[in-house]
Structures are given as C-alpha cells and as structure tokens.
C-alpha cells in the first residue's frame, strides 16, 4: 500500500472532533495525553535521538510547570504568555543538565546524576515557599488565552492541541534536518562523529536545551490542566512514567512518543474502569511494561513501521 506522508495531517483533524463525543472526564484524559506527548517528544530528543541516559526530564517538567505557575500567580500574567517563558526556563535547565554530559559523564553515571538533579529540584520547590508555595503547593488560576478563560476541558483541549501540533511539527522538522542527523551520528558513534568534524559538545548542549524547551512547554500545559502544583508531583514516580512513555512507544521515534503517551496515560484509566481492580494499578502497570519490553523491545512504533513503511521515521529527504 502506498501512502503519502500528508496523511499525518488527518490525525489532528480527526481529533478536532473529539469534544463532540467525549464527556469532560474523558476529555481531561485526552488533555493529559497531550501534555505527555510533549513530555515524551522532548525526552526522546535526549534519550532516543542523542542516545544519552539522562533522567533530568522530570526536572524540566517541574521547572516548566512552576515557571508558568509562578508567572501567573506572582506577576499576574495570563497563562498563554507564560508558555514560551516556561519553555525557556526548561531550556535553561537543559543547559545546566548538559554540563555533566559535556564533562564526559555517560551511561549509568549520567542516569544517576540526572536522577539526583531531579530530586534536588524537588527539594528546591519545597524549600522556596515564597515562590513555589512550598510543600503546601501552588494553586494556579484558571488559564486564559487572549483574555478568554479556558473554563472547561474542551476549551483547554483546542489550545493544547494547537500547541502540541506546532511543537511536534517544529521538532520533527528539526530532527529531519542537519541537526537531527548530527544527533543520530553522535548516538551511533560519538568518536566517529567527532572525527567527522561534528562539534559534539555544541550538539549535546543543543539537544538538552531543545529537550528542556519542549518538556518545559509540556510542564506549562500541565500547570494549566491540573491547577495545583505540589512538589510531590515531580518525584521519581514521574520519572518512571516519562521513561515508560518513550520506551513503550519506541526510542527515537516521534510517533512512538505519541503512541507511548497515549498508552501510558490511558492504561490507568482503563484499569479505573473496572472497579474491582481498585488498588491494583501499580502492579498491572509494572507487569505491562515488562511484557512490552520483553516482546516488543523496539516499542510500539516498530509494530507500526511493520504495517507500513510510512510510519518509519525519516531523517533525510529523498
């Protein structure tokens, strides 16, 4: 079957009609999926494309969310104006998180260090109550876009969808360009890439900053969606969630990130549907991830790629 890549435009158009058929609960779940799509896409840049085992993602997420929350509550800015600053704060955190990688820390060392970085940020949210509300949490006012309040989940959905489509397309273009190919070269063989004249240091910095920017925007959306931020939201459980999204979806694949976030966010809600399973969510979640890794080590995107080659990620233009 020969398909044109422009079919990818069908998906956002199809989901445009979702609010017609969903109630506010399901719509909320869809909005949460949109948030986690950005989280997955951003995380995948560092882990999937650059091939680094860096868990600092949850720090970017928290920083984006708190940046948005603090700007709206302390400075009274409308939410839509805080989205880009939240992304920039995330990017800044990304630059900071790239320092160990630039110093040559790799593999497990990098993983442990970035985990510690995330936990350190959580400690910081608790210890700066003047800004973040401390352990009592920060209540974020209802998000506004151009003076228009996003009162229901349906309103939030359209705004989120717009942001997600823009960011995902931009990321996709970037990854298909020279920059994306440089990331791949570094992932495959860092020394060879350096020998070919690719300035690996710069690309490390760029990848981390880019990842921080995308995830920071996701964090800003999370703040708008949830409305109450507390430091415990950004703990190691969140790391597991992010990691599961990209691994279940497929490393280094945009479609994978999207599929992963859909699956990982929807699974708890499916379990919730069966009331007799109440309290079993954790072990079911764990077991499902084990099963996916054992039987689909390249994630769901590899399954799609088998169905049709159009779902394969393309890093060059033909």
């Amino acid at each position: 079957m020969k398909l044109n890549r422009s079919i990818f435009w069908i998906f956002p158009l199809l989901v445009l009609a979702l609010p017609l058929v969903l109630n506010q609960y399901l719509q909320y779940v869809v909005n949460l999926i949109l948030v986690y799509i950005l989280v997955g896409v951003g995380f995948n840049i560092v882990v999937g494309n650059l091939g680094q085992l860096a868990f600092s993602n949850v720090a970017f997420f928290g920083i984006g969310a708190y940046a948005s929350g603090i700007l709206t509550t302390q400075l009274g800015m409308p939410w839509w104006l805080t989205v880009i600053p939240a992304g920039l704060c995330g990017a800044l955190a990304g630059c900071a998180a790239s320092i160990p990688a630039l110093r040559g820390v790799r593999l497990f060392y990098l993983a442990i260090m970035t985990l510690a970085f995330g936990e350190l940020m959580r400690w910081l949210y608790i210890r700066t109550p003047g800004l973040t509300g401390g352990s009592m949490g920060l209540t974020v006012p209802e998000p506004a876009v151009f003076g228009w309040m996003l009162t229901t989940e349906y309103h939030k959905f359209y705004v989120f969808l717009f942001i997600v489509v823009v960011v995902v397309i931009a990321t996709s273009r970037l990854l298909e360009s020279r920059i994306g190919r440089a990331f791949l070269a570094i992932k495959n063989d860092e020394n060879a890439a350096a020998a070919m004249g690719i300035p690996t240091g710069q690309y490390f910095l760029l990848a981390f900053a880019l990842s921080g920017f995308v995830v920071g925007i996701g964090g800003s959306m999370y703040a708008a969606l949830v409305g109450h931020l507390s430091p415990e939201d950004f703990d190691l459980i969140q790391v597991i969630l992010h990691f599961a999204i990209i691994m279940v979806g497929g490393l280094g694949s945009l479609i994978g990130s999207i599929l992963g976030s859909i699956l990982i966010t929807a699974t708890p809600e499916v379990i919730r549907h069966f009331e007799w399973l109440v309290g079993s969510e954790e072990w079911i979640f764990g077991v499902s991830i084990i099963v996916v890794i054992l039987f689909l080590p390249r994630g769901l995107s590899s399954l799609l790629a088998k169905v049709n080659s159009i779902f394969k990620d393309r890093y060059y233009r033909n």
Binding site: N23, Q24, V29, L225, D233, R272, G279
Partner: peptide
Amino acid sequence: DTACAQAKGIAAAKKMIY
C-alpha cells in the same frame, strides 16, 4: 483511586462527576 497524586486524583474525581 487517586494515588494521592493530582493528575490521577483529578481523573478520579472527574470520572465520578461526569
């Protein structure tokens, strides 16, 4: 089940309501 986490708690509450 709220799992004592905001995102899941909101889902639990919204499921109850809607």
